[in-house]
Amino acid sequence: MKITKQQAEDYLLQMYQIRAFEEQAEKSYMAGKIHGTMHLSIGMEASAVGSISTLEPTDFIIGHHRGHGLTIAKGADLNLMMAEFYGKANGYCRGRGGSMHIADVEGGNLGANGVVAGGIPMAVGVGIGLKMQKEGRVLLAFFGDGAASAGAFHESMILAVLFQVPVVFICENNQYAMSFRTSDWADSAKIAEFGKLYGMPGTSTNGNNLLEVREAVQKAVEHARAGNGPSLVVNDTYRWRGHSKSDRNRYRTQEEIDEWKEKDPIVRFTEVVLKEKLLTEEEIEKIREQGYADIEAARAFAEASPEPEVATLLEGVYAP
């Protein structure tokens, strides 16, 4: 799949922004500036950017708890996003949602979700609504391998096929549902088989290869936009960090982590764009610096932002 120089720049910048956001998130947490927990997607950048790069701005995504990368790939304002991570009043969710619930409904991001598989049934309904609204919009519904064993996923696949919704279900298989090794019951190819079993195209990709992810999702998006219904794409990838801050990495070896680090999706993409002569080493370095500078600016913005007023505590439960 060929891409332009502009696309190469855009995708690389987003991947660096994601990497930098996650590293900053970890630093801020370690410095005691963040309370609660977070779920980092370092190592999974190509899945987010490759998938979402296929969308029009008016399309939708719905995410999962490891959702920072998805939010950045959907074009979030990094300042508002970091402010939300910091729980500030001007964050996307006014400090109510935090890391696990960042959403930008106006921007087509229907939110990260703290319940594993929680977004999948909603995705069916978004698809039903999009079909009724007849504006040709589609939804990418992201979830992890942990959700693929949940009843919500299987019920939803059945309704998605029944109503032929314009939804691409994207399983980001990062190999572990918290500590449970997903390959003990299924690999990415087998999870993709669920799609075919339920009556929709199902395919798995090397989720660390941005162009391969993009090609598979592009095909599924076109399928949905043409009115041919849902698809399932499984991006095979890996999270470098633990499940959350409580993770002691007891269930996997350092050797395994190091092996996956050798398959860094950002490095892989830079190798391709160099080989294809889309970008030079110098241009890549400038993009990397830009990505980190954007996140540094977002950190400064977030830290300078106001805390929510306690007087606003009770706001926003009910719509008028």
Partner: peptide
């Protein structure tokens, strides 16, 4: 919309449709 036995998914479908402006 008549559906098979899917209490969780049909309820979630209502939530999702409502989220983008429908009134299920």
């Amino acid at each position: 919309l008549d559906v098979p036995i899917t209490e969780l998914a049909l309820t979630g479908a209502a939530v999702g449709a409502a989220l983008i402006g429908m009134r299920p």
